[in-house]
Design a protein around this nucleic acid. Structure first.
Length: 869
RNA sequence: GCCCGCUUGGCGGAAUUGGUAGACGCAGCGGACUUAAAAUCCGCAACCCGCGAGGGUGUCCCGGUUCGAGUCCGGGAGCGGGCACCA
């Protein structure tokens, strides 16, 4: 119903021959590009390269508008750089492993591989309809053994290089589905599918030592000057560096000490307790002998892990009865608590509490009636009158009641405290990070098998490289919950590569983030029998422009940055930063619709009547229009790209998605906007069709130009300069606006030979500059203007500086900052001339009547401001 | 709670980075073409007062710097994003 108007319009044409037939034309040029291999990256390493990459899609079934936006922007960059003479690499692939394929298998009985490859076929076809200038010869799918075998090889190489290790760690275990859940799959403490209460279970898991690179990943951010500041900040916060110290609290009656981490060693004299996490080794040991502590620990564990639960959770502790000795104060001991707010995963899982200067410690101290002694006094405050109520003081100040630290400011006190601790061998300055090592084991089928064999005699044995890939077995059974690889009758049983005795494969697969952490490198030599060819990656990497959604600002981009360094360590490449430039695009949004029963409706299920009312197409019931939100299947506010392409053509879809909204911001998809873009496509076509017979041939010598022709040429060359600059700066919406203006300027007809020449120049420029956005129409019109070389292989125009700068300028004239008129002056006119011309303006003298001119500010070619009073 | 971003006509957004606010598009209005409609083309259009010439106001709010502020500074409001018992 939605595209009724257009379809009828197209169907009822009598002058079809003169009308732009986008269907035929788009197919024609897509075929021509393919036959010409116009977008295959060259192997000529002497040429300057440009690597444009968009985040590759997950093959979920069909492409959505987010893909259209992402890949259109990448294509604009690719086509623009190609026209500038760069050897462009612009590849496409599929992030093809992942849970949805297994869910399809469970729900619909389709094998994950079949489901995935069929989706890839559909989506590849859809992407091809968009006319993207991709080098399809380098297509990869991460679920293909030809890809993941290299990933397995690198896993082994990383293992040998000490970048991979195995340890027991806690996971979210769904006892009904017999599976491990990601944190996002735990909703209110229950499994998202089964609804069962999730247990914390210890499993042996593989980890990548990303924390080895914490400092480098942090400092490296400073050099990523073509990344959005926002993303760099998010990564910085995620890595979460903090400087402080480790220090030991010997425990009375025990031989070992509790080691704590603190960022505030300066506040040690204000310490009033020591607290350890519920899963701290000491707590575990004590709980084994103390049932009350054991039940306290158990109680803490049942507490939700949601943000809200944490927010509301009260600080609770269990007094162990142990006393820890203060490092600086002779004979002073502190009570040792097991506390619910201390995390085993950060620092050492133990803290000392200084209630006066830490809010959590203060809350805890108030509850358990511990002493609160301020030791940092704000400058200018009398120490005797400074008290801490219910708000801890975390600001700067002078140390007080702190022995050898007294009188120092906070930074100096930190240094002094650490120096003393180190001197006593009771502690040591240290840096910790929030970043944890990357656990990659997943108890799933549809992922890259971890190439490890567990042998009773030899232990953990990597699969020898010549035996890779460890392929996924095809005959798997999804009828019972859990990991099909683990249940498979034969797959995991193999002889140990080192002793030959019966052994078992690791039945875990890798986190799918591993797959996407190096695909950019694989594209450089996509068919190599090694993970990468060194000369190829040395030439192509880093990616010059990476484009994708901001939702990957942290994990994917951080993991990729780590992976590049890991690959460098084992000799596969020589860059640290895989993505030199990053652009994060906004989302595609659409209004939402609900019927009277409150059920979501697809846009094509609603009809907008001329009177402004909105009703259901089916039975005319009133529809509630909701605010525009990111397109999502659950709210049905989606528009299918294929429908749009079939109704309006790919060029219209591409043009529309680039116009109006700046690329980094969300764009609102509207039918009216699409129709506006469609109008433009047809107008451009008509413009050229109507003009072509009156134009001089291509490359005709330039005649002498009259004023009118010169003015048109100025517009043309200003557009070249403007659009070039806009594309460079990712201001595609402004580039589109400028092309609209040029189109309007070219609409006037008449004039002599000079106008005809200028019009050809203008039309060719319009076509040339529009090609990145609407390549099919541009190729078509280029050919109609008599060119025999493909536009895709022709170069970007250069603006003539003499035509970009005007001879005369319009200068605004203000009196006391208020606009009173404008004057036309020769460019770079003398200041005195500008001043005289300004003062001669009638509105200026009117505004000046009864006032004395105090001074005249002249900004050449811009403004004259007469200051009077 | 901490960190970051944004706020401009009816709507999406421009504004050469301190120099004529509102380019361009959408929606709207008026006109041309048409028997009529669609399509197309031309024009109008921030708001208020005024028949008009014109005048006044205006970029979330308050204040400041400046000859001049959407743009810089200080304070505040609203919306959005990231992180979060991180010691």
């Amino acid at each position: 119903m939605k595209y009724r108007k257009t379809l009828i319009y197209l169907g009822s044409l009598t002058d079809m021959a003169a009308r732009y037939n986008f269907r035929e034309t788009e197919t024609k040029w897509q075929t021509a590009w393919q036959e010409d291999a116009a977008f295959a990256a060259s192997n000529d390493r002497a040429q300057p390269k440009y690597y444009v990459l968009e985040m590759f899609p997950y093959p979920s079934g069909r492409i959505h508008m987010g893909h259209v936006r992402n890949y259109t922007m990448g294509d604009v960059v690719a086509r623009y750089r190609r026209a500038q003479g760069f050897n462009v690499l612009h590849p496409m692939g599929w992030d093809a492993f992942g849970l949805p394929a297994e869910n399809a298998a469970i729900e619909r009985g389709i094998h994950p591989a079949d489901w995935t490859y069929s989706n890839i076929a559909t989506m590849r076809g859809q992407l091809k309809m968009l006319g993207l200038s991709l080098d399809w010869g380098r297509e990869i799918a991460t679920c293909h053994p030809g890809y993941y075998r290299h990933q397995q090889r690198m896993f082994v190489e990383f293992l040998n290089a000490g970048l991979v290790y195995r340890k027991e760690s806690l996971v979210n275990w769904d006892p009904v589905d017999h599976t491990v859940l990601a944190n996002e799959q735990v909703i209110d403490g229950r499994g998202w599918r089964s609804g069962a209460l999730v247990e914390r279970r210890k499993l042996n898991q593989w980890f990548f030592r990303i924390t080895d690179y914490a400092e480098e990943l942090l400092t490296g951010l400073d050099r990523l000057d073509r990344w959005p500041q926002k993303v760099r900040l998010m990564q910085e916060n995620w890595i979460g560096r903090s400087e402080g110290a480790y220090l030991d609290f010997p425990v009375d009656g025990r031989s070992d000490a509790v080691t704590v981490f603190t960022t505030r060693p300066d506040t040690l004299f204000g310490a009033s307790f020591v607290a350890i996490a519920t899963d701290h080794p000491l707590a575990v040991e004590l709980a084994a002998k103390d049932p009350a502590l054991a039940s306290f620990v158990a109680e803490c564990r049942t507490m939700g892990t949601t943000e809200e639960a944490i927010e509301k959770a009260e600080k609770r502790g269990y007094h162990t009865g142990l006393r820890a000795r203060h490092p600086f104060i002779e004979n002073k001991t502190l009570p040792v608590f097991v506390a619910n707010f201390v995390l085993m995963g950060y620092g050492t899982g133990a803290i000392f509490g200084c209630p006066a200067h830490d809010q959590r410690d203060l809350d805890f101290a108030r509850k358990y009636d511990l002493s609160v002694m301020p030791v940092v006094i704000p400058v200018g405050t009398d120490p005797t009158s400074f008290h801490v109520g219910n708000e801890a003081y975390t600001g700067d100040g002078r140390l007080h009641n702190s022995g050898f630290l007294d009188g120092l400011d906070v930074p100096a006190a930190k240094r002094a405290a650490i120096a003393r601790l180190e001197g006593m061998e009771r502690g040591k300055g240290a840096v910790t990070y929030r970043l944890r090592d990357w656990g990659i084991s997943r108890q799933r089928y549809w992922g890259c098998p971890i190439p490890i064999i567990h042998c009773e005699a030899c232990g953990v044995v990597p699969v020898p490289v010549e035996q890779l890939p460890v392929e996924l077995p095809r005959d798997v059974d999804f009828s019972t919950p859990g990991n099909p690889l683990d249940r498979h009758p034969t797959w995991k049983h193999v002889p140990c590569p080192s002793c030959g005795a019966p052994a078992e494969r690791d039945t875990d697969t890798m986190d799918t983030f591993v797959d996407s952490s190096w695909y950019y490198a694989r594209f450089c030599s996509a068919r190599s029998d090694k993970p990468v060819e060194r000369d190829a990656v040395d030439y192509w990497l880093p990616v010059d422009q990476y484009i994708g959604g901001v939702e990957h600002a942290i994990l994917h981009l951080l993991y990729s940055r780590f992976f590049a360094r890991a690959m460098k360590k084992v000799g596969h490449l020589d860059v640290d930063e895989p993505f030199a430039g990053l652009f994060t695009q906004g989302m595609v949004c659409h209004e939402t619709y609900k019927d009277p029963a409150g059920k979501w409706l697809f846009p094509e299920e609603v009809d907008k009547r001329p009177d402004g009312s909105v009703v259901t197409v089916k039975d005319g019931k009133p529809v509630t229009v909701g605010r525009s939100e990111s397109m999502s299947k659950s709210k049905k506010n989606v528009v299918d790209p294929e429908t749009i392409i079939k109704s309006y053509g790919a060029d219209t879809a591409r043009w529309f998605i680039l116009s109006d909204s700046p690329p980094e911001r969300d764009v609102e998809w509207t039918d009216a906007g699409v129709e506006g873009a469609f109008r433009h496509v047809n107008r451009a076509y008509r413009l050229v069709e109507e003009a072509v017979s009156s134009l001089p041939p291509p490359e005709a010598p330039a005649p002498a130009f009259g004023d009118e022709a010169l003015a048109l040429r100025r517009t043309t060359h200003k557009t070249i300069a403007g659009v070039t600059d806009d594309i460079e700066r990712f201001h595609f919406n402004r580039a589109v606006a400028r092309l609209y203006e040029l189109t309007a300027a070219l609409s006037a007809d008449g004039g002599g030979a000079d106008m005809a020449w200028a019009r050809r120049e203008g039309l060719e420029t319009l076509i040339r500059l529009s090609e990145p956005m609407m390549p099919h129409l541009a190729e078509e019109l280029w050919a109609r203007l008599g060119h025999t070389t493909m536009l895709a292989r022709s170069s970007w125009p250069k603006a003539d500086p003499d035509l970009v700068r005007d001879d005369t300028v319009k200068v605004a004239v203000q009196v006391n900052g208020k606009l009173r008129g404008t004057i036309e002056l020769p460019r770079d006119a003398a200041q005195s001339d500008a001043e005289a011309a300004a003062l001669a303006l009638a509105p200026v003298s009117a505004a000046l009547s009864g006032k004395t001119v105090r001074k005249v500010v002249v900004v050449p070619n811009r403004i004259v401001n007469v200051v009077a009073g």
